[in-house]
């Protein structure tokens, strides 16, 4: 349990108000599964059919995972993952 995951405020009602959750190292998609097992419903807010939703950005430390290996990006012990819904509209 050693990856720090930052939960955005709109999803904190699913994590009982926790803004940071510790997860196991592994691929981003595995980490989302772990989150969904522990906090049912959070998975579908972040991903759909194994892909990160278009208006959700995920950062591994300071880097957008879309520029690494997307859902298959490996997260190691000591890393920090931030889940950030986009700010957009028309």
């Amino acid at each position: 349990m050693s990856v720090k995951v930052r939960i955005p405020t709109p999803l904190q009602k699913l994590t009982q108000g926790q803004d940071v959750v510790e997860c196991k190292p592994g691929m981003i998609i595995e980490l989302i599964h772990e989150l969904d097992n522990r906090f049912p419903g959070i998975g579908e807010r972040i991903s759909e059919g194994g892909k990160i939703r278009r208006f959700v950005n995920i950062y591994l430390n300071e880097e957008d995972i879309r520029f690494i290996k997307a859902e298959e990006t490996e997260v190691k012990e000591g890393d920090e993952v931030s889940i950030i819904p986009a700010i957009a509209g028309g």
Binding site: N57, E62, D64, I84, A86, I87, A88, G89, G90
Partner: peptide
């Protein structure tokens, strides 16, 4: 008719 905040800038500002 549309906006999308630059995601890296959003990450840094947040």
């Amino acid at each position: 008719i549309s906006y999308l905040i630059d995601s890296k800038e959003q990450f840094t500002v947040m």
